[in-house]
Simulated assay, not measured.
Amino acid sequence: MSPAHVSVFMGFTRLRAYLVFGVLAVAAAVAVVFALVKDSQGGAVAGGCPAGATMVNLTLPTEADQVKLRVLNGTRTPGLADQVSNEFKDRGFVTQPTKDSKKKVTDVAVIQYGPKTVGAAQWIRAYFLGDAVPEYSAERTNDVIDIVIGSKFRSLATFTEVNQSMAQIGVPTAPPGTCVAPAPKGA
């Protein structure tokens, strides 16, 4: 090949490279526009929360003293709520005064919590080896988790059992009709 032919050949190669790059760039731009148009979070408001959704805290506490508990006796066994509350207190949790529940519970326990304590309630569930029934209520405005002890309760899980139970239960998820609150600064 003569030098003139090589120069023309190199020009076509360069032209083909520019065309391929241009086609790929246009395809990428179309994909981005399509993804933005089809975004399912289109109705989100500031903070990424859909209108009408309650923001919930999914953060798992790092220390027991970050969790406030109130134990209620949902059985006919006298003093059971005091016993369980003392066990939680011995493990470092902040406990509120106990009382009897109006509703009798046949399960191991019922864990009642609100938007501020979704992550913490998941951790408390692990103390019952995942057998406690979670009851979320968007109307709860405080940061106290109520535990209603039921007739199938035998004992709280050990430290090792809690860790194993957390692995089985998995990470906390936002209840229906809610969205995840931004993590606190420094978390």
Rank of each mutant, 00 (worst) to 15 (best):
T54I: 10
K99H: 09
D143G: 14
T117S: 13
A29S: 15
S40A: 10
D65N: 12
R76M: 04
E63S: 07
I149F: 00
C179N: 13
P172T: 07
I169S: 05
T54N: 06
T59H: 06
K185F: 05
D90H: 08
P184V: 05
G114Q: 04
T98Q: 06
S137K: 15
M10K: 12
V180C: 07
M1W: 10
F128E: 03
D82I: 03
R70C: 05
H5N: 12
A181V: 11
S7G: 02
V94L: 09
A120H: 02
N57W: 12
H5W: 08
F128M: 01
Q96E: 14
D65I: 00
F12W: 09
K116H: 10
L156T: 08
V162I: 01
A138Q: 14
G114S: 05
A183I: 10
Y18P: 00
P97V: 12
A17N: 07
T59M: 07
G130S: 03
A109H: 04
R140N: 13
G22D: 00
T141P: 04
K116S: 09
G42F: 10
M10D: 07
A4V: 12
D143A: 14
T160V: 15
C179A: 09
Y18A: 07
D131K: 12
V162A: 00
T158W: 05
T106G: 10
V144I: 14
E161N: 10
A132C: 03
G42T: 08
A46S: 13
V71K: 05
V33N: 11
P3T: 12
V105D: 02
V23P: 09
F34M: 07
T59G: 09
N142I: 08
P175K: 13
V6W: 08
A181F: 10
D65V: 06
G79N: 09
F12C: 03
V45H: 04
S7M: 11
D65C: 01
G43F: 06
D146N: 14
K116G: 00
I147D: 00
P172S: 06
L129M: 07
T75R: 04
F159N: 11
D100V: 12
L58A: 10
K104E: 12
V20W: 13
G170Q: 03
V108R: 00
A51R: 11
V20M: 14
G170H: 05
M55F: 01
A46C: 04
T173C: 01
Y18E: 05
A4L: 05
M10G: 01
A31L: 07
G170R: 08
G150R: 08
G52E: 03
A181Q: 15
S151K: 06
K152F: 00
V171T: 11
T77S: 03
V110G: 07
Q41R: 15
A183Q: 15
K185Q: 06
K68I: 04
F128K: 03
A167M: 09
G119E: 02
V105E: 14
Y113H: 15
S165E: 04
Q112E: 15
A81S: 11
T158Q: 05
K38M: 11
L24C: 14
P175V: 11
N142L: 01
L19N: 11
A51E: 10
Q41Y: 13
N86V: 03
V6M: 07
D107G: 13
V105M: 07
